[in-house]
């Protein structure tokens, strides 16, 4: 946890920000890998999904809810979500798609044609 001290109107304000490791499900289907990432309170435009050399990284930013008055319970904070994965499967990098719905990121990683299971015809002699 880091503390940023910023000044507004000359008064120092301590803003706590944290980096969270989001919970993830990874599902392998016959033709694709599907990642589900919990990102509560994150808007689609604040999610960054990156794939390079077999490494998938997810970064997201949760904006602070404007609050007035005084805090009674504080169990989570605004801040970043960050996580990376090494994908050992051969995936078609140019066909990766991602969507966010209800605070859950879903990334589809289609397997490359070469990696798909193939039925090999056996010839009779």
């Amino acid at each position: 946890m880091s503390e940023l001290v910023t000044k507004t109107n000359g008064n120092p304000v301590v803003q706590r920000r944290v980096t969270y490791t989001p919970s993830v499900d990874i599902l392998e289907l016959p033709d694709e890998l599907v990642l589900l990432v919990d990102l509560p309170g994150v808007k689609a435009e604040n999610v960054d999904v990156h794939f390079e050399r077999g490494e998938l990284t997810v970064k997201a930013r949760r904006e602070a809810t404007p609050k007035s008055g005084r805090a009674l319970v504080e169990e989570f904070l605004p801040g970043e979500f960050s996580r990376g994965f090494l994908i050992s499967q051969d995936v078609a990098a140019d066909q990766i798609t991602a969507e966010v719905k209800d605070g859950v990121l879903k990334v589809h990683l289609p397997k490359s044609q070469a990696a798909l299971p193939r039925r090999i015809a056996v010839k009779g002699a």
Binding site: P40, L72, D102, G103, V104
Partner: peptide
Amino acid sequence: VNVWEDADAFYVEAELPG
């Protein structure tokens, strides 16, 4: 959850993804 209050109300936010 986060809970806070001002003179008029209590405010609660809860993480419920999906």
